[in-house]
Amino acid sequence: MPTTDLPILVLNGPNLNLLGTRQPDLYGRETLADVVDLCGKAAASFGRTVDTQQSNHEGALIDWIHAARGTTSGVVINPGGYAHTSVALRDAIAMLEVPVVEVHITNIHAREEFRHRSLVSPVANAVLCGLGTGGYRAAIEWLCRATEA
Rank of each mutant, 00 (worst) to 15 (best):
G134T: 15
V101S: 01
R22M: 14
V103A: 01
P2I: 02
V10W: 04
L19M: 13
L18I: 06
P2S: 15
T85D: 06
A42S: 14
V35T: 15
L32E: 09
A88G: 02
L6T: 06
L26Y: 13
G81A: 15
T147H: 02
L96W: 11
L19K: 04
F46P: 00
C144W: 03
D5S: 15
P79G: 15
I8R: 01
G20V: 07
V127G: 00
C144R: 09
V75M: 12
L16E: 06
S86E: 00
L16I: 10
L6M: 12
A83K: 00
R111D: 02
A94K: 07
R117W: 06
S55G: 04
A110C: 04
L9P: 08
G70C: 13
I77K: 05
F114I: 01
L38S: 10
A67H: 09
G13E: 06
T133I: 14
G20P: 02
L128A: 08
V120E: 08
R115Q: 12
H116I: 00
W64I: 09
V75G: 08
P7I: 07
S73N: 08
R137V: 11
S86Q: 01
I93D: 00
A33D: 14
A67M: 13
V10P: 01
A126H: 11
E113V: 08
L128E: 00
T4M: 12
L18P: 05
T31K: 13
L18Q: 09
V103W: 08
W64K: 15
T21D: 01
V103Q: 01
S55K: 13
N107G: 14
R29P: 03
A149S: 10
P79T: 13
T147M: 11
V36G: 01
L61K: 00
T147C: 03
A88S: 11
A83N: 07
G47T: 12
D37I: 10
E113W: 10
L16T: 04
N78V: 07
L19A: 11
D37E: 10
L38G: 03
G28A: 11
A146P: 14
W142H: 05
G81I: 10
E97Y: 13
Q54W: 03
A88C: 01
T71L: 09
L11V: 04
E58G: 05
R48M: 11
F46D: 01
E97K: 12
L18E: 07
G74M: 10
R29I: 15
A44D: 08
G28Y: 11
K41D: 14
R69T: 15
P2L: 07
R117F: 12
A67N: 08
V120G: 02
P122G: 05
A42C: 06
Q53P: 05
N15H: 09
A67I: 05
D51F: 14
A88D: 03
I93P: 00
G81V: 14
G130S: 07
A126Y: 11
T52Y: 15
N17Y: 00
A33H: 02
H84I: 10
F46W: 13
H116K: 09
T71H: 13
I8H: 01
G135F: 00
R48I: 00
L128V: 12
